[in-house]
Each structure stands twice: as structure tokens, then as C-alpha cells.
Amino acid sequence: MAEPAVLEVKGLTLEFATRHGTLRALDDISFSIRRGEVLGVVGESGAGKSLTGSAIIGLVERPGRITGGEIRLKGERIDNLPPDRMRAIRGRRIGMIFQDPLTSLNPVFRIGDQLIETIQTHTGMGQAEARQRAIALLTEVGIPAPENRIDAYPHEFSGGMRQRVVIALALSVEPDLVIADEPTTALDVSVQAQIITLLKRLCRTRGTSVMLITHDMGVIAETADRVAVMYAGRIVEIGPVKDVIKHPQHPYASGLMGAIPALDTRLNRLTQISGSMPRLDAIPAGCAFAPRCTKAIDRCRSERPDLMPAGASEAACWLVGKVSAEASA
């Protein structure tokens, strides 16, 4: 692999200083995304998946602070840049798509103005040329009659159409990486299917890398190439999407897969993981999942496992060898 990864995160640690002491919200997160690759990041609320996204784009709110590790975009370190340089990177090299399209669209501007301004700032194109380019983009994301719709305000669009506009805005500067944080969560299923298909197609044709943050394993299954499963601020398993879904190695990942009701079969009981994810101020020593894990051994409670190779994936579990042996048996 001669080409450096588009995004490389190594040992990222993020802490909140609170009056009850320091809470570690992200703990030693490492992963990379190659060109044109879609990395899915799943986890329950509070697992740290959105926070990972915020850390990469340099938008961690106080009192949160990156206290360790590094983030590299195409080999260049970006976690320690001054705010103004980071702002340039955010607009130009990393595109963002959020759950609520209205956070990215200014309600008092026509969508065309926002698109054209973004294109002009980043490419130095003239007004007419930028407008042509904006119309082309809107066509590409599937907005009907873009020549007319370009002069409409955000509130004149439906939820799905707004999210398409946001995607156009994110892709307008041809970024290296797009971070999509729950891009379809607020949408109905039929619209969600449209947006997923669109995102997939655009990234494939443009070779854009995507970090897709979602709680919905189904969306990941359809969209992502690789997936990272997060739990209590750590990555517990990362690997090709097929392997993680069909042969999850970490007990949490396998519990999660069993807990999702399926469309094609009706089981009597879903696999359930007892308890719930610990709060940040009560993360146990050792493996954070150990108290809920049916297979935990003494070592799990005292020593924290790092990611280690497990089949085609990597899992942070002391029992990795055993679990995979059982699964194949």
C-alpha cells in the first residue's frame, strides 16, 4: 500500500474535565480509512461514535479535550492545528453531513446561494460558472428541476430533499473525506433507502472516503465496507462488514447482532445483553464489557484488552481465540 490512508487515527484519547474528576470519553481509538472506502462506526448512544467524528473535524466542545493520540489526513497531522487552519480543512477537505439537515443549511439563504458561495470560496470560480456547477451537483444528488429549485429556501424542501442538498453541499468542494453522522436517522425508511443509495453511488464514482456514524446496523450492512463497533469509548471490534456481521468475534458485537430483530425470520426470543452500557464515570477496570459478558474470565475484570487479530477482523477481547473456535464448531 503505497498510498497513505486518507484518514488515520492513532491512539485518540478524549477527556472531559468535570467537577467529579476527569472522564475518559474516548480511549485509545485507532483506525484508518482508505481512499474510496466507507467505514461504518456503530455503537449505542454514549459509546463515543459521534464524539469521534467531532474530534476528527476539530469541533470538540468544552470541557472536552483531546489528551492523546494523533489524527492524520492524507499523512498531515490535523489534531493540533490552530482553529483558523482547521476551519479551512473542515470546509474544504472534510465534508460533513448531520442527522438534522437544518444544522447545515442557513434558513435565511437560498440553497443556491449557500452552494455557490461554498464553491466560490474553495475553487475561486466566477459566479456564473459556480452556479452551473451548483446546478450540476443538485442534478447529481437527484433534486428534480434543479434550475428552479436552486433559488428555493431550505424550508421549501422536504426532509429527504434537504438531506440531498446537504450532501451536495458536502461534496461541492470535492473533499477527501465525508463524515456522515446519523444521516438517515430522522428520515422515513423509504427515504432512508434513497439517501443510502445516493451516498453509496456518489462515493463510488468520486472515490470519496466516508466515515458513516450510525446506530443502525442495517444501514451499515448495506453501505459500509468495513465497520468499527464502539462500546464505552473504545473500539471493541473492527473489520470487514461481512465478517463482523456474520462472524462477530467480540461478545458484545455478537450480542448486538443477535439483538437485532430480523425481517425474514421470527425468533421466539432475541438475544439479550443484560444491563446497559456503563456511564463514563463508572467504567469498570479491565474490559468495560466484562460485567455484562456471560463469558468473562478473571483476566477480563483486571486487565484491559487491546485490539488483536481475530479471524478477518480485530477484536479487543481476551477470549478471541475461544469465541471464534466456538463459532466455527
Binding site: 467537577r19 448512544s45 459521534s50 467531532s54 472536552g64 456511564r279 463514563l280
Partner: peptide, 11 residues
Amino acid sequence: MAGASPPPATQ
């Protein structure tokens, strides 16, 4: 952004 604030302390 969801999860960007620390949880309230337990009492």
C-alpha cells in the same frame, strides 16, 4: 451533537 457532553454525575 449527541454524546458530546458528559453525563450527569451519579448521586
